[in-house]
Design a protein around this nucleic acid. Structure first.
Lengths: 164, 164
DNA sequence: GTTTGCGTTCGAGCGCGCTCCAAGGCCTAG
DNA sequence: CTAGGCCTTGGAGCGCGCTCGAACGCAAAC
């Protein structure tokens, strides 16, 4: 699980907070092992998505991929990097539509940086909201677990009844 | 936004960690203002979902709701509490299918508590994974924001180019 | 030489979770 | 008395993000 490795590294760096973490994320963004050229299967494996999905992203205009002599896709470093970004955005819930808009801005050159920034800022807020929601849900789940079976104190028995 | 209020309270309590937070979550689970009887519009408003969705949940067998003389739904405290739980689970990504299974277990009585516990434990892990993923995504987004417009250091200019 | 395996394209299909429509009932305000 | 508003039901429709099927190509293995 390459993704898990990345996550582990990221969380490590987040643990040790401060100005150092920016550097750590930087390394993260530069993905560890990116061969010059990768097949669709390799990229799918790397990103933990299916080849179907990769083709779908291409059809959706999120990315252009070169072909070799046999007409097979060849993912270069640039393509893989973009896909890492795209899957990150998808994982955090950014809709395909927004992603399509975003990449169209990228294609329009540097002058669209402000608008891209807007999109990112908005998505950041969305992700933060999600994090708050999830944290709250987690608390609710753990509370319920405690009433059901966890040792939560002397009134555990009573809590089970309250939990319904 | 009642939901937001709840969130705010929950996050407050999470901030001040320790054995106290369990109590705080307890208060949270007991929802602040639950009138004896509520209309579908009131409940929808409370939970920030549409009346359509509430009817859908009922059709899906997630909950039974009584009717008044006019055939209109009357949500009692018990129903509202279950819906708070259900929406919490939905918000954290539990599939309808699992939720249907869960409530069928509840209907089967106390002897299904162990299986319910299993479901909750598994979902807790899922939520934790989501939290890790989201945290990583947030870091990636903030890194990109920094390269685009944030003051991230002396090499900001250079970073913009790298950010593509 | 044929089988196996991985790739290609285009288009259709699907699972999920709503979301809406149509036709109608009851209640209140004007 | 009628109009507006909110509710009811059953069933259909929809947007999203994949996911798959069919038919085919190329290339290495047997």
């Amino acid at each position: 699980m390459t993704t898990d490795d990345l996550m582990a590294r990221a969380l490590e760096s987040l643990g040790a907070d401060g100005p150092l973490s920016v550097e750590a994320i930087h390394r993260l963004a530069d993905v560890a092992d990116v061969p010059e050229a990768m097949t669709i299967a390799e990229v799918a494996d790397l990103l933990d998505i299916s080849p179907h999905t990769l083709r779908y992203y291409e059809r959706a205009g999120l990315i252009e991929v070169a072909r070799d002599g046999n007409g097979h896709r060849v993912y270069d470093t640039h393509a893989v990097r973009r896909l890492v970004f795209l899957t990150r955005m998808r994982l955090s819930g950014m809709p395909m539509r927004d992603l399509q808009h975003y990449v169209s801005l990228v294609d329009d050159g540097e002058r669209t940086v402000p608008e891209r920034l807007d999109i990112l800022l908005e998505h950041r807020d969305t992700v933060r909201r999600q994090l708050r929601e999830l944290t709250l849900s987690l608390a609710a789940i753990e509370y319920k677990i405690a009433t059901y079976g966890g040792r939560t104190g002397p009134d555990a028995e009573l809590s089970v009844r309250r939990a319904r």
